[in-house]
Amino acid sequence: MRKLLIGSTAAAALVAGSLIAAAAANADSGTVVRVVDGDTVVVSINNNDQTIRLLNVNTPETKDPNKPTECLGPEASEYLKQALPAGSKVRLEFDVERHDKYGRTLAGVFNASNQLVNAEIARKGLGVPMVVGENRKFLPPVQAAHDEARKAGEGLFAESIECTLPAKVAAASEALASAEEAAPATTSSAAGASASTWASALVAAKAAHDLLSAERDSEHSIIWAAYSTGEAASKLKALSDRITRADTTLNQVKEQQKTLAAAEKKAEEERKAAEAKAAAEKKAAEEAAAAAKKAADEAAAAEQARAAAAAAEAERLRNIPAPQPYVPPAPKYVAPQPAAPSNPYPGYTGPRCYAPGGKTWRPC
Rank of each mutant, 00 (worst) to 15 (best):
W361M: 08
V36T: 07
T186W: 03
A246N: 06
D147S: 09
S189M: 12
D28H: 07
W198S: 06
L212D: 07
S228P: 04
L72W: 03
K254V: 05
S18C: 00
E75Y: 01
N56H: 02
T9E: 14
C364I: 00
Y79V: 14
K151L: 11
A22G: 01
H220L: 08
K101Q: 06
G133C: 03
L176S: 04
A280G: 04
E97K: 07
A171F: 05
N66H: 15
I320D: 04
M1D: 15
P329L: 14
P129L: 09
K294D: 08
A314Y: 10
E162K: 06
R104K: 12
A290G: 06
V327Q: 15
G103W: 03
D247V: 03
L92C: 06
V334Y: 06
A305C: 08
S200Q: 13
E281C: 11
T9F: 15
Y348C: 11
V132K: 05
E315P: 02
L54G: 07
Q337R: 09
S194R: 03
K237P: 03
A205P: 09
L19V: 00
A112M: 06
Y348L: 06
Q304S: 15
K258M: 10
A10L: 14
E286C: 07
A191K: 01
A175T: 00
A199R: 12
S188M: 10
R34A: 13
A263R: 06
I6N: 12
C353L: 12
A299M: 09
L260K: 05
L106P: 05
A285K: 09
A238Y: 04
L4H: 11
A122N: 00
R306W: 04
G38H: 04
E215H: 13
A107N: 08
A292Q: 05
P351H: 14
E303S: 15
E231V: 03
A25I: 04
L126F: 10
L165A: 12
A195T: 01
R34S: 15
S188Q: 09
A195C: 07
C71H: 00
E75R: 01
E154G: 12
S77I: 14
D147M: 08
S18W: 03
I223P: 01
N47V: 10
A233E: 07
Y354C: 12
P323E: 01
R306G: 07
A172N: 05
V15G: 00
G230Q: 10
G230C: 04
P140Q: 13
P68K: 15
Y354K: 12
A299T: 13
T69D: 01
R123W: 08
P341M: 11
K151S: 15
E255D: 09
A76S: 10
G103R: 02
A27I: 05
N48Q: 14
V90N: 04
E78H: 11
N114H: 09
Y354S: 09
I20M: 12
E298W: 11
Q115H: 08
I320P: 04
A310Y: 00
E61F: 07
L80Y: 03
F94T: 02
E162M: 02
A24G: 00
T164C: 08
L212A: 13
P351G: 13
V327W: 03
K168C: 05
T259Y: 02
P85A: 02
L202K: 01
